[in-house]
Amino acid sequence: MPNIVVLVKQVPDTYSERKLAESDHTLDRDSADAVLDEINERAVEEALLLKEAQGGEVTVVSVGPDRATDAIRKALSMGADKAVHVSDEALRGSDVLQTAKVLAAAVGKVEGYDLVIAGNEASDGQAGAVPAILAELLGVPQLTHARKVELDGTTLKVERESEEGITRLEASLPAVVSVGEKINEPRYPSFKGIMAAKKKPVETLTVADLGIDAGEVGLGNAWTSVLEAAPKPPRTAGQRVTDEGDGGSKVAEYLVAQKLI
């Protein structure tokens, strides 16, 4: 019966205006609506499918400010059993590596975990590397960008999908898996699930609780620094024509003029 940890993240909604704060180039959390990242719903779904088939327990782990509670509650209302929420003002402005360190420490708090499941890439930072870094820090195999996950006892098989095609992977538990968007269709929380989620335990931890020095995290201690950030001048629309039977030729003329063909 696998003991599964699912990582979830609250992100600014892709369909609202996303920007960085002018003062320190951190994410401007007030400018955009906050949602549970879509790929995380698929991670939760995959964990629940494994639990339904093989038993075990699903623990949600999230690192983020207090309002990440909404994302955690959503995962719990889908059917996860409990949650660990790392929330600490000291984390503000942490970069990818710092965040991964905190996640690794938080996963370590879940006793006897067998499997960590995450989304392959968040829609905001898009580093696409946190699950791999987590595997590095935990010293376990990474089976990432999965479009299919099979667990047989302690043997894990994954079909990885990338630009290169499909790679079949195999490793023993414990391991880190990240899922791609073709893995499954996440369920909607039921009314019963939403009510039950309110009673499920959520443990809130600070970085000190994880044994991490506050001097290792946060904007001032990050190993990378944003020097400047500016909204990209919007691409201006160029020429536009209405097809009157010669649209294809018009495009060809344009491409020739631009020396593209």
């Binding site: 919007p234 691409r235 629309a237 160029g238 020429q239 536009r240 024509v241 209405t242 097809d243 039977g245 010669d246 649209g247 294809g248 030729s249 018009k250 495009v251 060809a252 344009y254 491409l255 063909i261």
Partner: peptide, 24 residues
């Protein structure tokens, strides 16, 4: 898409694309 296109054609792709293929 037209807001970011350098060259846009308002029309049926099944007319425009084959014609462009031929021109190329």
């Amino acid at each position: 898409i037209f807001e970011i296109a350098d060259f846009g054609v308002v029309g049926d792709l099944f007319q425009v694309a084959p014609q462009l293929t031929e021109e190329v």
